[in-house]
Every structure is written in structure tokens, then in C-alpha cells.
Design a protein around this nucleic acid. Structure first.
Lengths: 226, 226
DNA sequence: TCTACTCACGAACACTGTTCGGGTCAACTG
DNA sequence: CAGTTGACCCGAACAGTGTTCGTGAGTAGA
């Protein structure tokens, strides 16, 4: 409601600026994607609506379907665009662990920048070309590090899955903050949740992305050992 | 469409059976949950609609909101119900690894039985009482196995996150089968995807839940080492 | 018997993704 | 320069979603 009117308002202002000279710029997939990303960045994945994107482009929803088959395809395009932003380093056998962790962190930050978009990443087919570029790069790093192919491939799979799940959850945690969470844990009945209560501070510990790096590290450490 | 009419048809048949003697059974949260679970099991999470649940209970959507605040709350209740189905064994220090893996497998199977419901698990707050019962149990197992508290807690977090992500993906993979996936991988340009192509069979390998057990195993093995 | 109160629900609202059909405009062709 | 072609565009509508409001029916208590 108040959003739609605001979009229209912005559209009017934009039109007022350069309506007389330039004819309306044609809609392209690129413009759709950048508009959608801006929308998600500003208001989260739930706000990503065909209508909202169309409104931001000063048009109706139907116009989008000339360039994009589905909303699902739009989602795919979005995570593809995000994947293009992560840089995959050339394999350095001595530092394969850090390199992989760095790529995962990049992907995580991309997902976190656009809250909730990781849901689309989970739904997207893993055959997306841009994500395959990442897995190819990480595979190269792991192979250079001496990890056997199958283990490498499966570990990549698990790591990327974890990145998505982690970012999905992180995007929701904005709502209920840590203190609230801790308070609820402390209300648990001691007879049924003895261990949880005893180590509640440990459970709740972890600044920033400590848990993230711990989990990915766990996955990677298992590779060197075997 | 055809579904709605079929629901009504089923409702009519049911009504025809015991309409005269028994007055309509009152709606309870329990009935809502079991109905919803049956729906998800039969047709997947996307089919889980307030209207569909209401229709199966021979009533309108509005009636549900007397017992359930949201659809989100309904989702929560569902994953709570699923969590109750997993049995957490008493800690056996010698077998902590198998025990944890077994619990994870149970949860995985619960999620897979109701396709797509893992999405709700990812969205649900981790403070759900029934899931906390599981984490408490697993925490007990890990502590008994000699794993330091913080590592144990974080590993549980990572494992459950992975279980959800894995099952979400598995639920979608029913659509595009493995052969198709492999064929697409083989179409990749060899100059850009050399490693992916070279080990495409390894990547695609893995019967059943091999990848699942590999990933969880990786997480657990890292715990005993440090 | 009359009232009070909980529960149930039909109808509606605001929103979603998606399709259809006609429309508008630019650029080729004769 | 006039005419036609064709790509692009988009208003309107459809079917479906979650959710709320106000009314109704039915049971339990006075």
C-alpha cells in the first residue's frame, strides 16, 4: 500500500526528470535483475514481487514475462548474479584451507547482503552456470590441495548447502535477538534440559561468524585427515 | 481446482457416513496438525494451504484461526510434531558417533517423508521446544563422548542446519532426475570446467544417503580430533 | 426459560503469480 | 515518402493465497 504509492511517486519523479527528451528505456533482463536486487537489499526477499519489480520499472507485471519465464527463473538469475560477485582465487596448494573458507565467506556475505535470498539459492537447481563456476574453482583448489576427487566434490556440496542454510537462518534472526533467545533458554525446566542449561552460555556464544567458520572448518579438516 | 472439488467430495462422503448420529467433531489443534501432516505427506508442502486444511476438516479457512495464530505457527507445530517422532537414545560413550548420526538420519527421514516441510524447519525458530529436546539429547551424547561443550553445541547447530538444507534440496530433486543432471554437466565447455568434467562421475556418485552420512561424518570426526 | 459465552464460519480484503489480447512504436521495404 | 511488418509492451483479468470482521449457532449456566 504505502509502498506501492511510494514506488509510483518515485516513478513520477524519475519521469519528471527526463520524460521530454529520452523515450522510455527498454526493459532488459539486466535491468530487471538489478532492480530486483536493489529491492531485496532494501526490503528483503519477501518484498520481491513481480508487481514491485514492475512498479519500480514504471510498468505493469505482465511486461516482465517477456524477458523472464517465471518468478523462479528470476530467482535463479538473482543468485546467478550474486555468484558472479565472488572471486575464486587460483589454487595455492599450501593454503587450500583458507582459500576455500574465503570463498564460502564471500558467498555468505553476498547472501547476507540480500536478506532472505538464500531461500532462492536452496530452491535453485545446482546446475546454475554461475554457481558451477564457483564449485569448479573450489574443486580445483581442493584437488590441488591433495584431496581425493570424490571427497572434494561431496565436501563442496555439503559446504554450499551449509552456507545457504546458515544465511537463511541468519536472515531470520534479525527479528528475535540473541538476548531474547538466551532468556528463553534459561526458562527451560532443569530436569528435562540439564545439559542445555548448564552450557547455555557456550551454546549462545560466538561473535559474528565464529560458528560459520567453525562449521566450514570442521568440514575441511575432515578432508585432510582421510 | 480439481483438488478443491475432490476435497469437497471426500467431505460429502464422510458426512454421508456419520452425519445423522454424531454431531460434528470439534476442531482442535491436534486435528489440524494431523490433517496438515497428511496433506503434506500426500501432496507436498506447497499444497499446505489454510484453505486446503480447512476443506479437509469440512469447514472454512476462518475456523482455523481460532486455534492457530498464523500459518507460520502451524508450520511450527508441524515440525514440532515431527521432532517428537525421533527417539533420542541414552548416551553410550563408546558409540557416540553412531548415535548422533542415527538421530540425524531419523530427522532426515522425518523431513523426507513430508516433502518440502524442511523449509518450515529452516524458518522455524530454533527455540521450538520439541527440537530443543533433540538438541538436548544429542548434546548429552556428545558430552558423554568427551566433546568439549562449545564444540558440541556448535556442531549440533551445524548438523541440524545441514539436515534441513539436505532435505530441502532432496525434496526438489524429485523433479529433475540424476541422469538429466549428469547430461547437463557433460555439456559444459571443457576449457572452463576441466575439473568438473574430469570427475563428473565422482561428483554424481553416491547411492541413497551416502553424501548425507559423509557430511555429518565429517562434522563429527572433527570433534573427536580436537 | 432466558442469558452469556465460546466456538464456528461466510464473506470480504489485500495481495500473490501468471496469461490473454489488443495496442504502440521503430524500423525495414517498395 | 507511405505502408507494412514485427518486436515489444502492458491493462485487465483469473485463480489462488493468508488473514480479519461480524454474524450466527450451539452449549452451558442462572
Amino acid at each position: 500500500m504505502t509502498r506501492n504509492t511510494r514506488d509510483e511517486w518515485a516513478a513520477q519523479i524519475a519521469a519528471l526528470e527526463d520524460a521530454p527528451p529520452a523515450r522510455k528505456e527498454p526493459i532488459t533482463v539486466g535491468r530487471i535483475v538489478t532492480t530486483a536486487l536493489a529491492l531485496v537489499e532494501a526490503e528483503g526477499f519477501d518484498a520481491l514481487t513481480m508487481r514491485r519489480v514492475a512498479a519500480a520499472l514504471q510498468t505493469g507485471p505482465a511486461s516482465l514475462y517477456a524477458h523472464v519465464r517465471n518468478k523462479a527463473e528470476l530467482d535463479d538469475l538473482l543468485i546467478g548474479a550474486l555468484s558472479k560477485n565472488v572471486v575464486v582465487p587460483a589454487p595455492d596448494p599450501a593454503r587450500w584451507r583458507e582459500q576455500v573458507l574465503d570463498v564460502c565467506a564471500q558467498l555468505r556475505d553476498q547472501f547476507l547482503r540480500y536478506p532472505g535470498i538464500a531461500r532462492a539459492a536452496l530452491a535453485a537447481p545446482p546446475a546454475n552456470l554461475n554457481t558451477l563456476r564457483i564449485t569448479e574453482g573450489v574443486l580445483a583448489i581442493l584437488l590441488a590441495g591433495g584431496v581425493p576427487p570424490r571427497k572434494a566434490a561431496w565436501a563442496i556440496d555439503a559446504a554450499l548447502l551449509y552456507v545457504s542454510a546458515y544465511t537463511v537462518e541468519s536472515s531470520l534472526r534479525g527479528e528475535t535477538d540473541r538476548g531474547e533467545m538466551l532468556a528463553r533458554l534459561k526458562m527451560l525446566p532443569p530436569n528435562r534440559f540439564p545439559h542445555t542449561l548448564e552450557h547455555v552460555d557456550e551454546i549462545n556464544a560466538g561473535e559474528g561468524h565464529d560458528r560459520f567458520e567453525f562449521a566450514i572448518g570442521l568440514l575441511l579438516d575432515g578432508l585432510s585427515a582421510g
